[in-house]
């Protein structure tokens, strides 16, 4: 196990380095630069060139990369060239919206995906199981942004139960307002995520139901449900946990769309704005942190996977 963890950790570090090079180079493909953003459509070419020189954008790429990665290693992910704010500070501020948005959506999604998924599997042959499965299929097929738009139209504009868009100016200092702002985004995101999870829970439980040892347990006198609860769920949880880890990347992407629909000042919205402004020093820090987070979560999920799956625990 220790050997495995060490090897896996070494791989993680290599992956992070590769990601940093990739992020840095890919962003350099973007046409235009921040000097042009600062100069706008009235500055002369000479003025823009002067700004470019001041910012060191005319140095060789290798030097710029070395500068950046040197900071990252010491924990400094960079600053915005435009307003001087630090990447980690801004990410923390935006994560106060995106974090609860994604986490709440996952909780909500699990809250209906797990019971419904089990029902859909156990009662597979019945009307109920079929219905639940159909709902899941339909939920996956609905475009997230479209669902969001319709929810706003009904619950915010027509019946006015919830705010149509935005997040309180003072953020979580107004907890009631903040929560109300997130209800519709949560529902929107949880619908698509939940529908995906439902399908996984269903197939995982189905898989378990077909296993020989479960039949043995039933033969020993357990009821089907009893056997499932006693032995099956832990086994069914293995693939579901793996999927949940992979879903993190999807959640971030889904959150970007939802943030746009509901005008939430989150990570996704910031990323789009920063790319638009060519504030690359900031963008590369943000992307590296996000990509890094996905890789680290993948690492942790792998470890968790080993811990709950008895078959893998002994393997190297």
């Amino acid at each position: 196990m220790t050997l495995y963890v060490l090897r896996r950790a070494a791989l993680l570090v290599v992956s992070l380095l590769a990601a940093s090079v990739l992020v840095f180079l890919v962003l350099r493909l973007l046409p235009g630069d921040i000097a042009q953003t600062i100069g706008g459509i009235k500055a002369t070419p000479a003025q823009v060139a002067a700004v470019r020189h001041d910012l060191g954008l005319d140095r060789p790429l290798a030097a710029q990369y070395a500068d950046w990665i040197g900071g990252v290693v010491t924990g400094d992910f960079g600053r915005s060239v435009l307003d001087g704010t630090s990447v980690s500070g801004q990410l923390a501020e935006k994560f106060a919206v995106t974090g609860p948005l994604a986490a709440g959506a996952v909780v909500l999604a699990l809250a209906f995906a797990v019971p419904l998924g089990i029902v859909a599997a156990v009662r597979r042959e019945s009307r109920l199981g079929g219905l639940v499965n159909a709902v899941g299929q339909f939920g996956i097929a609905l475009p997230t942004l479209w669902v969001g738009l319709l929810l706003v139209l009904v619950f915010a504009v027509q019946v006015r139960w919830l705010p149509a868009q935005g997040f309180p100016v003072d953020g979580w200092a107004e907890p009631g307002q903040a929560l109300r702002s997130l209800v519709l985004p949560w529902l929107t995101l949880a619908l698509s995520e939940g529908a995906v999870l439902l399908r996984f829970v269903r197939s995982a439980v189905l898989d378990v139901l077909h296993q020989d040892w479960l039949r043995t347990a039933r033969a020993k006198g357990h009821t089907r449900t009893g056997a499932l609860v006693r032995h099956g769920l832990r086994n069914a949880a293995v693939p579901v946990v793996a999927v949940l880890g992979l879903q993190i990347a999807a959640l971030v992407a889904g959150a970007v769309v939802v943030e746009q629909v509901f005008v939430l000042p989150g990570v996704g919205q910031m990323l789009i704005t920063d790319v638009g402004n060519r504030d690359l020093d900031k963008v590369q820090g943000e992307i590296l942190l996000l990509t890094g987070a996905v890789l680290v979560i993948g690492f942790l999920v792998d470890l968790a996977h080993r811990l709950i799956d008895p078959r893998l625990r002994s393997a190297v």
Binding site: I140, T144, E193, V196, D207, P239, V243, Q247, A250, A253
Partner: peptide, 14 residues
């Protein structure tokens, strides 16, 4: 059921 198979692709959904 091929959980791994599903996992790979459904994630890109959103």
């Amino acid at each position: 059921v091929r959980e791994a198979a599903d996992a790979g692709l459904r994630v890109r959904e959103a």
